[in-house]
Write a protein that binds this DNA or RNA. Structure first.
Length: 572
RNA sequence: CGGGCCGUGGCGCAGCUUGGUAGCGCGCCUGACUGGGGGUCAGGAGGUCGCGAGUUCAAAUCUCGCCGGCCCGACCA
């Protein structure tokens, strides 16, 4: 491609509404443009990068035996009703009614369609299968943000494994795990594999691939000692044991006028430090009011509450609901003596004595509370949010907490979708069995944006060669100088002939403009062709990630450059 | 869905308080000079001031409504 003919609309200034680095650079560099909230056009450069990522993903899927499909984006309501997700997805699914009055949804993922197709399988002998596609997904996100990181229309590679039994699923899952490691590594990303909550996908085990970034929306905890890591929605921690005194024979009420918060009680002279308090939260879980108990210095992780109870919906109770249930308002709530309400307690409270909590009487608290003695049939669950410094659940070393982007998620689904959509095969004894499924996703544009988050400097993007829009840019300093332009063009053609993705910057621009653009756009190698060098028979060759260039002989240039590029293409 | 902010040439912004000729930088077009880090000079094009009502002799500016976008939170395979 000749830059003078290319559509690469670079901008000198960052767009005012771009916050994330990847957003700024992808817009400024001419890779993408916003069409509406959460919807972007990929320009030629962005399309080239995404195509390379998709091709790379495709090659790794084929490597583990994946077969590519092309599936509709338009889905009849019926198959989603069968899996129960037509309702469950709520407003996040784009929906419309066609001219005949049928409900149609835009596909946000393809478990249903693949499970429907899997209904054509008859025998265990046809298994295992890995089916995949790389296509557009639609999700009506409540809040699109951060450029291409969180959007409403995007490209996803999603694959599905079909097996006769859980052991087969385990194997397919492991194969995907390895494929994903290769995919992200080839993209130049060090992705952390973490234990994750499966959310509304169902299933019992899932692993997310996370890239650390300040633009991320997920928080993970990881152990630098043993490598254990998990999404904060999932991971638990080991806490230092608390030494409680004997406490009182029975809880004792005391006045706490105007004291509402854990902090208030902690600083009250007759109170207790936060870790000696019981925090009482009232939630409505699938329509019924429940008590949630945590240690005073802990926060509730709502996703854990959903996962632990299997509930579909959760919200904090209103003040009216709380008063009706407990007779007091937030600030004076406690679990002691409460009957008829489900009590969900974080495991950190187990066995604690001599605690302080609300008395269910406004402006009064109780001291000397013995959890086992005074609370009616609590259900012990892991509900608290892990904090940095908590002990690793496996090795007790302190956990780090970091902000990350989720670029891949792999799930063991089990038989939920195959049962709902009738995907069954006969096993070796002639019995009908539902196919055991796994589901595995990678966001293509999000991966591109994540690479930018990880690979940039103050001048622009620094693409890994494997997914760079072009591998080499030849900067012709003065295209009006015939000899210079001819030398640049000859090198360009020589590189193309060797299969190198080269871009010839033949624009009639000042050198500074062309250098700035090349750096902004992030092409991994730049060759500068100028009259002064030509007189000496040399060109300047400079990798984007290095500060200084090196001189190379013009006669050997195409070979030298091609070698450098090939060396940086990952081996596979 | 709650809270905050913003819509003025392609991009970044000023003008709005106190109503009266729409402005700046960059970019773009033409020409000349220049040619190793966003160069200089000269000339030029380009704006329904988000949309709609209202107030007014007069609205980018004041009022109301709507639409769109961004950020924080809630939510989120």
């Amino acid at each position: 491609m000749r830059w003078s003919q290319a559509f690469i609309p670079t901008l000198r200034d960052d767009p005012a509404d771009a916050e994330a680095v990847s957003h700024q650079l992808l817009i400024r560099g001419g890779f993408a443009r916003q069409l509406m909230s959460g919807v972007y056009s990929l320009l030629p450069l962005g399309q080239r990068v995404c195509r390379k990522i998709a091709d790379l993903v495709r090659s790794e899927m084929e490597r583990i035996g994946g077969q590519e499909f092309r599936l509709p984006a338009l889905h009849p309501a019926e198959i989603w009703q069968r899996s129960g997700r037509w309702e469950a997805m709520g407003d996040e699914m784009f929906r419309f009614t066609d001219r005949r009055g049928s409900d149609v949804g835009l596909g946000m993922t393809h478990e249903e369609v693949f499970a429907h197709l899997a209904g054509e399988l008859r025998s265990y002998k046809q298994l295992p299968q890995i089916w995949y596609q790389i296509q557009t997904k639609f999700r009506d996100e409540p809040r699109p943000k951060s450029g291409l990181l969180r959007v409403r229309e995007f490209t996803m590679k999603d694959s599905y494994s079909l097996d006769i039994d859980p052991e087969g699923l385990d194997f397919a899952f492991q194969r995907h795990f390895e494929a994903y490691r290769r995919i992200f590594s080839r993209c130049g990303l060090e992705a952390l594999a973490v234990e994750a909550s499966s959310g509304s996908m169902g299933g019992n085990e899932s692993v997310e691939f996370m890239v650390p970034s300040p633009a991320g929306e997920d928080w993970i905890a990881s152990c630098s000692s043993c490598g254990h890591a998990g999404n904060l929605e999932k991971i638990t921690s080991r806490l230092a044991p608390m030494e409680d005194g004997p406490g009182l024979e029975a809880p004792e009420r005391f006045a706490t006028p105007g004291l509402r918060s854990i902090e208030d009680i902690a600083s009250f002279e007759h109170g207790a430090p936060a870790d000696r308090q019981i925090k009482t939260l009232i939630y409505v879980l699938d329509g019924s009011v429940v008590q949630v108990l945590l240690r005073g210095d802990h926060e509730l992780m709502e996703q854990k509450l959903l996962d632990a109870t299997g509930a579909g919906e959760l919200r904090p109770a209103s003040d009216d609901e709380i008063r009706a249930a407990l007779g007091a308002l937030p600030g004076s709530l406690g679990p002691v003596g409460v009957e008829g309400l489900r009590v969900l307690a974080d495991a950190s409270l187990r066995g604690r004595r001599d605690m302080v909590t609300g008395a269910n009487l406004d402006d009064f608290h109780l001291r000397g509370v013995d959890v086992e003695r005074d609370i009616v049939s609590p259900e012990w669950l892991d509900l608290r949010e892990v904090k940095a410094g908590d002990g690793c659940p496996l090795c007790d070393a302190p956990l780090d907490v970091s902000q990350t982007i989720e670029i891949g998620h792999i799930f063991k689904l089990g038989t939920r979708y195959s049962e709902a959509l009738g995907a069954k095969v006969l096993d070796d004894s002639g019995a009908s069995r539902p196919i055991v499924m796994g589901s595995y996703g990678v966001g293509i544009e999000r991966t591109m944006a994540s690479v930018v988050e990880r690979h940039h400097d103050d001048r622009g993007i620094i693409w890994p060669v494997e997914i760079a829009p072009f591998e080499v840019v030849i900067t012709v300093l003065n295209p009006k100088d015939v000899a210079t332009l001819e030398a640049g063009t000859a090198l360009y053609e020589a590189l193309l002939a060797q299969g190198i993705d080269a871009l010839l910057d033949d624009r009639n621009e000042r050198p500074g403009v062309k250098f700035k653009d090349a750096e902004l756009v992030g092409i991994p190698f730049r060759v500068t062709v100028g009259p002064k060098g030509l007189e000496r028979g040399i060109l300047e060759f400079q990798p984007r990630d290095v500060d200084t260039g090196q001189e190379i002989e013009i006669l050997k240039a195409s070979v030298t450059i091609a070698e450098a590029v090939l060396e940086r293409r990952t081996q596979h």
